[in-house]
Computed example of a mutant assay.
Amino acid sequence: MNRVVFITAPEIFRDEEYYKPKKVLEDTGIEVITASVKTGELRGRFGFKTTSMLLIQEINPNDFDAIVYIGGNGSVIFFDNHYALKLANDFFKQRKPVSSICIAGVILANAGILKGKKATVFIDGKEALIKGGAIYTGNPLEIDGNIITAKGPDVAEDFGKAILKSLE
């Protein structure tokens, strides 16, 4: 059975960017583990609650088949977080899917893994992607090799389907 780790802010993450891709994956039997900078209850922008089972520094990439960075205003705490950036690199080097939705794409840019890759992000992150060497497309969803990026909540379900397809 595949296992995927969702990196989620402790608060103000975008609810539907979390629960829609999670549902797509879990409906096919994939185990989704949520990780953050704290364990216990996490709260989304619109009141959705979930539970972090792992601290991001405890994540072993060998235990997971893909990593997903969830967007929303809260995700800015990961933009320069050593562990978040290292994990993106570790998964990328192992040729495992690395994905982000909304503003969380800035994490991938800051990790240095978007150089020469087509990518998209919520418009506020466009300059960070370009600075990180990405080929910014502005498309709702972008897949370039093992990197999957999505623009925002409107494509959260399609984002989940793209992650699912990458695991086949």
Rank of each mutant, 00 (worst) to 15 (best):
G72I: 02
V24R: 10
I7S: 03
A156D: 06
S166N: 03
E11F: 13
P140M: 06
V68Q: 09
P140F: 07
I59N: 05
F6K: 07
V76G: 11
G105V: 01
K165Y: 04
L87C: 10
Y19N: 12
I143M: 06
I30R: 10
R43W: 05
V98N: 04
K118Q: 15
G71K: 08
G40T: 05
T149Y: 00
F13H: 04
A111N: 01
T8D: 01
E168T: 14
K118C: 09
V106Y: 02
P21D: 04
P21M: 01
K22V: 07
G71N: 06
I113C: 09
K115Y: 08
G132K: 00
K165E: 15
E16T: 13
K86A: 14
I107A: 05
P21G: 02
I70K: 01
Y136G: 03
D80F: 12
D154Q: 14
S100H: 03
I77V: 13
Q94T: 09
K161S: 07
N73V: 11
A104I: 01
D80C: 03
D158V: 01
E142R: 11
E31T: 15
A9K: 01
I59V: 14
V121S: 08
F91Y: 01
V98E: 02
G112N: 06
A150K: 02
L164C: 09
L141P: 00
I59Q: 04
L42T: 09
L141K: 02
I135K: 15
K151G: 00
V121N: 13
Y136W: 14
K22W: 02
N110T: 05
Y83I: 06
D65R: 07
L87E: 00
L54W: 08
I33Y: 10
A111F: 08
T39R: 15
G44F: 04
V98I: 09
D65K: 13
D158A: 14
S100I: 00
I103T: 05
S36W: 10
Y69Q: 07
S166Y: 03
I7E: 00
K23P: 00
A156Y: 02
Y69H: 10
P21T: 02
P153F: 01
K131V: 10
N81R: 09
A162M: 07
S75Y: 00
D144H: 12
A156R: 06
N62T: 10
A128G: 00
K165C: 02
A35R: 08
S99K: 07
N60L: 04
V4M: 04
L85K: 13
T149S: 10
I59C: 06
L54C: 10
S166A: 15
F122V: 05
Q94G: 12
D90C: 03
G44M: 05
V5T: 09
A162N: 02
D90G: 03
I77K: 03
P21S: 05
V68I: 14
A109Y: 06
S36V: 05
G132W: 05
D158C: 07
E26L: 12
E142G: 08
V76N: 12
N110E: 05
V155L: 06
N139C: 14
K161P: 09
N89D: 10
K165L: 12
T28V: 14
E58F: 00
N110K: 15
A109H: 09
S166Q: 11
K86P: 01
P61E: 07
K49N: 12
F46P: 00
F92W: 15
V68M: 14
I130C: 05
E26S: 12
R45Y: 12
F159G: 02
G40A: 12
L54R: 15
D15K: 11
